[in-house]
Nucleic acid binder design. Structure first.
Length: 157
DNA sequence: GCCAACGTTGGC
DNA sequence: GCCAACGTTGGC
């Protein structure tokens, strides 16, 4: 039997890379994560077929803008090897990469963003990592939480 | 633009 | 191994 799929939330500043960019590109590699907790989730836990909430941080308002699916499991984040990249890290090298990433593909662009203030008002979403560790850019989400967000996205404003 | 919360670095 | 200093994230 196949392993149950898992659910995640990944943050991006829409000025840097938005759900609309992903809709245009179809897939992208999630480079630039330089936080160990977030890296460990990508390197060790994320599997092909896992579902992702695509979150716009630093937006007005911030919130979940759509969904994506993991389509390639972890491999070294090559932007860390590129001296010209702003994500360059001299401590990472090809023999012993420090940073990893996954690829995701677009699933759905929500008709409306499920905003952070809205999420804060939903009782069943109070335990989301998003509300309790605001700085983690790749984080696990419970299936129930994922489903509630999807339902909110379908609801008329 | 401010600043709180948090993670990382490096001296000791 | 502690912790102060510093840098970054991200909401407001």
């Amino acid at each position: 039997m196949a392993k149950a799929i898992q659910y995640w939330l990944m943050k991006s500043e829409p000025d840097a890379y938005s759900i609309h960019d992903l809709a245009k590109d179809k897939t992208t590699h999630w480079d630039g994560v330089r936080n160990y907790q977030a890296r460990n989730f990508m390197r060790d836990e994320m599997k092909i077929g896992d579902r992702v909430l695509f979150y716009h941080s630093n937006d007005k308002p911030p919130g979940v803008a759509g969904t994506a699916t993991v389509c390639k499991e972890s491999y070294p984040d090559f932007s860390a090897f590129d001296k010209k990249s702003k994500y360059f890290d001299a401590k990472s090298n090809k023999d012993k990469p420090r940073w990893f990433m996954v690829d995701i593909k677009i699933d759905e662009v929500f008709d409306r963003v499920v905003s952070l203030p809205e999420i804060k008002e939903v009782v069943s979403l109070q335990d989301m990592v998003l509300l309790n560790n605001s700085r983690l850019s790749v984080q696990p989400v419970k299936k129930k939480e994922f489903d509630v967000i999807l339902k909110l996205a379908k609801k008329k404003a």
